[in-house]
């Protein structure tokens, strides 16, 4: 399959990768190890002397009463993001591929549109639109006789709304990628199933889902990893983790400890723990996506 081109070509290969590698080395790998290093110290970014405290930060992490709440919130975010950005796009892609005949291009284009807009702008827009007392959404709801709850101060609901704002941005991208996977399922199979009067939902679960699983898993993982990182912006702009940490997740908490309280060592330790969780996901991604796919080569 892949030809070997002789040893001199190996140097060419290295040369091609070098520029990217260099940048990574300076701005990714070095900071990564430096953060690991920092996690064993007590520091606030200013003091000239860092105090070595061994595993104390990690111990404090596990004893921190805030951690269970933060982790619970993180899980909630992940679940909601998955439903909105993994399940919903899937269904939508299915509908667009096999149920609706016309307007595909238009829908694809229109749904993807918000993805190109800054999330800061999006957060501010939604702050205005979703003002529970005097925003456009509230006024519309009043016509229908509903009172919008004050979501920015309601536990649980605040996570939902912040997830919705994040969804606004990432739905389009996820949808397009899944659409690619779904539309790769051969039309003939679908047509055959329809002729056999197989109900729509069965077609979805038994045919489409398995055949596009590689894409599905990819988006699943990306939604968790990137979704959490994207959510950071609305949390920072709209609630700053409030009310009473109800909207803070592990990423935001790391930011708060590191850049608001300046507990540099503690924040670093928390980063490592978050990183470990992500690595687990990474291993899954590599197993399923890289191995279980079919390429032309």
């Amino acid at each position: 399959m892949k030809k070997k081109f002789g040893n001199k070509d190996v140097w060419i290969a290295y040369g091609l990768i070098l520029p990217a590698l260099l940048v990574f080395a300076i701005f990714m790998f070095y900071p990564f190890f430096y953060t690991v290093y920092l996690s064993f110290f007590d520091w606030n970014m200013i003091k000239p002397v860092k105090e070595f405290i061994g595993l104390a930060n990690y111990k404090a992490l596990f004893a921190d009463p805030l951690m269970p709440l933060v982790i619970k919130n993180t899980v909630e975010y992940i679940l909601i993001l998955l439903v909105l950005n993994c399940v919903a796009p899937y269904v939508l892609a299915f509908v667009l591929s096999f149920v609706i005949k016309r307007g595909r291009g238009f829908y694809k284009g229109a749904f993807f549109l918000p993805s190109v807009i800054s999330l800061v702008v999006g957060s501010i827009l939604y702050l205005w639109v979703l003002n529970p007392v005097s925003g456009p959404a509230a006024i519309l709801a009043e016509f229908l006789g509903i009172n919008i709850p004050i979501w920015s101060k309601t536990q649980g609901l605040v996570i939902v709304v912040l997830s919705i704002i994040t969804t606004w941005k990432i739905f389009g991208y996820n949808f397009i990628v899944i659409f690619g996977g779904v539309s790769g399922v051969p039309q003939e199979i679908i047509e055959a199933a329809k002729i056999d009067n197989v109900p729509l939902y069965k077609i979805f679960f038994d045919i489409v889902l398995p055949m596009s699983s590689a894409t599905g898993v990819y988006i699943f993982i990306m939604t968790i990893v990137q979704g959490l990182q994207y959510v950071f912006t609305p949390v920072k702009v709209v609630t700053q983790g409030g009310p009473d940490n109800a909207s803070s997740n592990i990423i935001y908490n790391i930011y708060q400890e590191g850049f608001v309280f300046y507990h540099t060592g503690y924040a670093s330790a928390m980063s490592i723990v978050a990183m470990v969780l992500f690595i687990v996901l990474l291993v899954i991604e590599f197993r399923y996506v890289e191995k279980g796919i079919y390429y032309e080569n």
Partner: peptide, 10 residues
């Protein structure tokens, strides 16, 4: 998969 918060400070 490295959260940006990890590389921010360094």
């Amino acid at each position: 998969f490295i959260p940006f918060t990890m590389t921010m400070i360094p």
